[in-house]
Design a protein around this nucleic acid. Structure first.
Lengths: 127, 127
DNA sequence: GGACACTACATGCGCACGCATCTAATGACA
DNA sequence: TGTCATTAGATGCGTGCGCATGTAGTGTCC
């Protein structure tokens, strides 16, 4: 129970802070950032299903997330020749740049907030 | 970073499992349960602002949450004589019963899922 | 007492979500 | 090759969210 409430509190606190900072300074949300990060660390392209796993959202939400990112010019949809049902989501130049800009913000907010909250058992000594 | 992704993964996993179990077996969501729990552990009544804190939602979302619970007959809004801007949210008989029914489900799902996920640093030795 | 800043909660609005479903492509099997 | 179950992703729909704002009650200062 203590763990659970700690988890809720910490998640809410960090997500809120991240959402505000990323939205204000870079015009993207937490899920958008996670998606960009996944793409940036996956050779700049991966399947939609991989993103679904990365952002912890439903398949439909991921589809719309990709649509938003594409509308923003941060990613592109590419047909997958191997399996033409699927798509490759590829990071554009603008997307890679946006990610690099947002990354320090992301890390800084994490640093500030992830240790807060009342979840003592989840706080490791290091880091 | 490891902590962060662990937090995200764990939160998503537990919330999903809880949402499904609570919704299927008791017709309430995670936030609804948290609100009922807060009320049950607060002498069956508390201010709307207290609920806002408990459920980690915005004030407007809490207002609608209370409206849903009231529509379901699980809580009632009572005028606060001390400060007539505010309200007391009170747990009804049905609400108290629903909470008692849902509580074992909630605890069981927590027990099953809160240790899962890939966040090793957040996993204490005990439990 | 009257004006005004402030607070508690409600509500209009736009947006992102999940669920169910649709479409198109794949793979297996006859 | 034709049929059919399965899979990847897109989309209609209803719902819950946050933000901004509205409404009503409170406290202060004159």
């Amino acid at each position: 129970m203590q763990q659970w409430h700690g988890l809720l509190a910490r998640h809410a606190a960090v997500c809120n802070a991240l959402e505000v900072a990323l939205q204000e300074r870079h015009g993207i949300g937490v899920s958008e950032f996670e998606a960009l990060e996944r793409l940036a660390t996956c050779d700049h392209k991966c399947r939609s299903a991989d993103l679904t796993e990365a952002v912890h959202l439903s398949q439909s939400a991921t589809s719309r997330l990709v649509a938003r990112l594409e509308r923003e010019g941060l990613v592109q949809r590419a047909l997958c020749e191997m399996d033409r049902r699927g798509i490759f989501v590829t990071l554009t130049e603008a997307g890679a740049q946006r990610y690099q800009e947002a990354k320090p913000t992301h890390r800084a907010v994490l640093q500030e907030t992830i240790g807060d909250g009342d979840c003592v058992v989840c706080t490791p000594a290091d880091d």
